[in-house]
Design a protein around this nucleic acid. Structure first.
Lengths: 233, 233
DNA sequence: CGATATCTTGATAAGCATCAATGTGAGTGG
DNA sequence: CCACTCACATTGATGCTTATCAAGATATCG
C-alpha cells in the first residue's frame, strides 16, 4: 500500500467528484490529504482499530463488514468512487474496510479533516451531502434485510450494482465480489444466493455468462421485484 | 402541532445537548430555528414529501419507517433527544417520521441550516458527529437484521432501549411502542416478538410486569445474547 | 360493562439454512 | 500440454426457525 502526497490542487467538489483538496489553509503549504493505493484483498482498517483518518474512495471497490464473536458476518456495504469511510463517532472503527479490487483512496488525517470542515466553505456541506446519501443507502438496506424475500434481495442488489457501474438497459454487469460476500451482504447463505440467481435466469430476468458477470434481461421486471411490487416471488 | 420561535439563545452544543441556536448571524436578529410540538400518533413528515427542513429531537420518541407497495413495513429506527432527522440527499424524505410519545422538535429550514453549517464554527462538526453516531446505529441494525436470531434481536433491542432511557442495572424499562412497531423494527412478526419475550421471561432474563414495561433481570446474559456470544438461543 | 385494539399462545406451513455431493475455472508443476 | 489442486460455485435432500393462520386473553376506552 503506497502513498503519494499532493499539494496545491484545486478545490473541485461536485457530487461524486472529489471531496479532496490538498491546500494552503493558513498560509503554509500543507498537504491536507494524501493519495494511497490498496491492493485487492488488502484491508484499509479493521473493526476496533483507532480511527485516525477519514477516506474518500477515488477508484475501485471496497467491502465494509462487521463480525459477531462466532464468525457470523454482515457486509454492510460496497463502496465505490465518491463514498466516504472512517467517519467514526467514538474514535474507533465500527467496521472492517477491505479492497475487493485495486482501490485508490484519498486520506485525510482527522485533525486536517476537521480543519477543512471548519475552514473551507462548501466542504462541510459536501461532506454532509455524501453522509446523507449513505444514510439513505443504509435505510434501503434495512428495508431489504428486514422485509424482502431472497429474490427481491437479489433483484435489488443487482440493480444497485448496475447503478454503481453506470450499466445501460440490458447491459452486462460485473460482480467483483464472491458469492459469500453477496450472501453476507443480503443476509442469506451462498447456497440461497446461487439458487436464487439460477432461478432468475430460468425466469429470463437475467443471464449469467460467467460467475463474475450478470446481464440484466428485463430491467422493468427486476425493478418491480426489487421494489416489492408483489406479483411473483 | 404548534410552534414557538426563539431568538438570541446561546450556541451551546455538547453532544446530545442541543444543536440548536436561534442566533444573529449577519447582524439582523434572525430566528434560525423554531420549536415545535407534535402529539403522539402525529406524523412530522412522510416518505416522499419534499424535504425542506432538518429537525433535532429535543424530547419524546419518534418512529422512522419505510413501506413497500404491498404494505410490508420496516421501522428503521426510534429517535430520542439529540437525534437528527430530515437530512435528505435528493430533496425528498426517504422515510416517514411519526411521534409515538408527545415530541418536541427544533426545526431548521434547509437554507438556514446550510447557513449555520457554513457560518457557525463548531456547528458542522457537531452535525457530523451526530450523523456519524447514526451511521453507526445503522450498521449495528444491519448486523442485527442480517445475522441475528430472534432472541438475539430482542436482547439487542431491549439493551438499546435501556441505554436510550438511561436505565440502571436491573431497572425497569418503558416500551412506548407497540409490538407491531418492535416487530417491524426487528424484521420479525408480532407473534415471534411476543413468543420470544415470553421465552426470555421463562429463562429469567427479563420480567414483563405489563405490556409496556420490561425489567432486565440479568444484564450480563442479555449482553452475551445480544453480542452473539453463542451459548444458547 | 361491552366494544375494540393489542397481546399471547397454539397448530401448521413455508422459506431459507444446513449438510452433502458435484461441477467449474484459474493457477501450478510434471 | 495436461493432470492436479484448490477455491469457488451450483445443485440436491432434509430440517429448523420463523411466518402464517387461528383462537383466546388482556387491556383500553367510551
Amino acid at each position: 500500500m503506497y502513498m503519494e502526497t499532493l499539494a496545491g490542487s484545486p478545490a473541485g467538489s461536485l457530487y461524486h467528484g472529489r471531496l479532496g483538496l490538498s491546500t494552503d489553509v493558513d498560509g503554509r503549504s500543507a498537504a491536507l490529504s494524501t493519495l494511497q493505493n490498496v491492493e485487492a484483498g488488502e484491508a484499509v482498517f479493521a473493526e476496533g482499530d483507532a480511527a485516525d483518518s477519514i477516506y474518500e474512495v477515488v477508484g475501485g471497490i471496497l467491502r465494509l463488514s462487521k463480525l459477531l464473536p462466532d464468525g457470523r458476518r454482515q457486509v454492510t456495504g460496497f463502496l465505490s468512487r465518491g463514498n466516504l469511510l472512517g467517519l467514526a463517532p467514538e474514535g474507533f472503527c465500527v467496521y472492517t474496510a477491505e479492497a475487493i479490487t485495486p482501490v485508490r483512496l484519498r486520506r485525510y488525517r482527522r485533525a486536517a479533516f476537521e480543519r477543512l470542515v471548519a475552514d473551507v466553505p462548501g466542504f462541510a456541506r459536501h461532506v454532509l451531502a455524501v453522509a446523507s446519501h449513505e444514510m439513505r443507502a443504509a435505510q434501503d438496506q434495512m428495508m431489504l434485510l428486514g422485509r424482502k424475500s431472497a429474490s427481491e434481495r437479489l433483484a435489488s442488489f443487482l440493480l444497485r450494482m448496475a447503478e454503481m457501474q453506470g450499466v445501460e438497459d440490458e447491459g452486462k454487469l460485473a460482480l467483483p465480489m464472491t458469492r459469500t460476500d453477496i450472501a453476507d451482504h443480503l443476509g442469506l447463505t451462498i447456497e440461497t444466493v446461487s439458487r436464487t440467481l439460477s432461478k432468475l435466469r430460468r425466469d429470463r430476468l437475467i443471464d449469467l455468462p460467467d460467475t463474475g458477470h450478470v446481464v440484466l434481461l428485463d430491467r422493468d421486471l427486476l425493478e418491480d421485484l426489487a421494489a416489492g411490487d408483489t406479483d411473483q416471488d
